[in-house]
Amino acid sequence: MIRLKGLRKVYGRQTVLDGIDLDIAKGEIVVVIGPSGTGKSTLLRCINFLEKPTAGEITVGDLTVDACSTSRKDILALRRRTAFVFQNYALFANKNALDNIAERLIVVDKWPKEKAREKAREILQRIGLGDKAEAYPASLSGGQQQRVGIGRAMATGAEVILFDEPTSSLDPEWVEEVLGLMKQLASEHQTMVVVTHEMSFARDVADRVIFVDGGRIVEQGPPSELFSNPQDPRTRDFLRKVLPDQTV
């Protein structure tokens, strides 16, 4: 479903991703954890070419793109098969909640406006914002904005949704409603790759947790194993810091 082969990203003399190999099955929920600045976000952003990888191969569905020889068409096709949820929501400020969600259907998929808005209205209901269709981003709370951000990703019908620290910019009071929506999506078997510091989400929802450090996958496994019995000393060290109340 998604396959990354030898993904590398180098900025100047700094290697941020140092050969990532990863297979993700349809419907799988993968949570990526690791210390700050170890390339977790870069990994996600390379999957849809918001950052151009230095080398490696990306397969999403039946499309394979080689980082060294990409055409504009490939990148567009890749982006249309993936959806992205941003840390800072990144809603279109000139469009209301409904049109933020409908935009992709209207512009990229060329649906008639009314049909697209109908679908967007359906999604607004599902994300619990049925009454906010006309609201512009500036008038929504952080939690509501991020839910619209997720709704926008849902509307793409993408094979995978990539979440880049979706709750890190939120006031604590809004974190739960966003995580709740993500859990709901997970229960509907939406393929998801989530970079997050919310360990409880990783433990409760993930099928697989991936620990990344120094641009490499250090260790991976189901959350029950990874959290209770980490093998690598770096994983143990990291988990001890983020889960202080737990003996690792």
């Binding site: 849809n48 918001l50 567009l76 982006r79 249309r80 993936t82 959806a83 992205f84 941003f86 800072n88 990144a90 809603l91 279109f92 400020a93 935009e103 992709r104 512009v107 990229v108 926008r152 793409t156």
Partner: peptide, 13 residues
Amino acid sequence: DRSQTEAALSIGM
């Protein structure tokens, strides 16, 4: 805001 550019690209515009 630069992030809106990324958002637009991410939905395949």
